[in-house]
Amino acid sequence: MPMSSSQLLSISTFVFALASFFYIAALIFKTPRLTLPARWAVVAAVAITTGGILLRWVESYQMGIGHAPLSNLYESLVFFAWTAGLIYLFVEFKYKNALIGAFVTPIAFLAMAYASMSPNISDHIQPLVPALKSNWLIAHVAACFFGYAAFAVAFGMSIMYLIKARHPDKDKGITGHIPKLDMLDELTHRMVLFGFLFLTVGIITGAVWANSAWGSYWSWDPKETWSLITWFVYATLLHARLMRGWEGKQIAYLSILGFSAVLFTYFGVNLLPGLHSYGKV
C-alpha cells in the first residue's frame, strides 16, 4: 500500500526528534562529532516533510477538493516546522555554528509532535469553505509562517544569548560551546529583520484577502489584533536597538516577549472569539 502523507509526516516528526537529540547530546556531552549526524537528520527531516507536504497536496486533488496544504491548524504547524528547519539549515550553512541547532530543532520537533499527537488536532484533509478559497490566503499563511519560523529561530538564539551572558568568558562546559555573544546578537537581529519583513507581508496579504472577501481590510478581530501586537513588539525591538544602552540582553528579552506574542497569536487566540476559524481545531 502506498504511504499516506500523514504517515510520511509522522516519520519526519521522529527524524526531527532524532536531530534534536543529537544536537542536545553534542552540546551537553561536548562531542562536536555528534553534530554531523544531527545535521543530516535535519536535512532528512526537512526533505521528508517536503515530501509529506507535496503528497498531501496531491492527495487533496485526488479527493476532488484540491487546495494548497495550508488550510488548518495541522497543516500550518507542519509548514511551520518545515520552514523552521529550512531557515535553520541556512543559518548553519552560512554561519557554520552547529550548536544553534540544539536550541532550534527542538522547536520544530515540538510543533510536529503537537500536530501529529494532540487529540484535538485533526490530520484529515478538509474541503475549503468559500471564504478560504483565495490565493491571497495562501500568500498570507505562507508569509506569516515564514515570519513565525524566523522568530522561533531568533527566540532560540535569544535563549542561548541569556545562557551565555551569565558566563561570557567561560570556555568550558555548555556555555563554552555556545557562539560568542556579539555573533548571537547579530544573528538574532538578522532573524528578527527577516521575520519582521515576512510578518509585515503576512499581515498585509491578510488585509488584502479580508478586503476581497468581506469588503474591509481591517476589522480588529482578535487574531488580526494579536498579529498587530506581535508586529508592534518587534517594531519596538528594532527601534530599541537604535537607542543607546539597549543591546544584548534587553534585545534578547524583547525577542522572547515577541515570540510569546507569536505563540499567543497562534494558539491563545483560539480561546477568544473571532473570524479566523480555520485556526481552530
Partner: peptide, 22 residues
Amino acid sequence: VKLTVVLLLSLAFTSIIGTVIP
C-alpha cells in the same frame, strides 16, 4: 526614539484589552 519605544509598547499592551473584552 525613546518615545517611539514607549508608544509602540503602549499600543501593543493596550491592544490586548480589546481582544479580551468583546
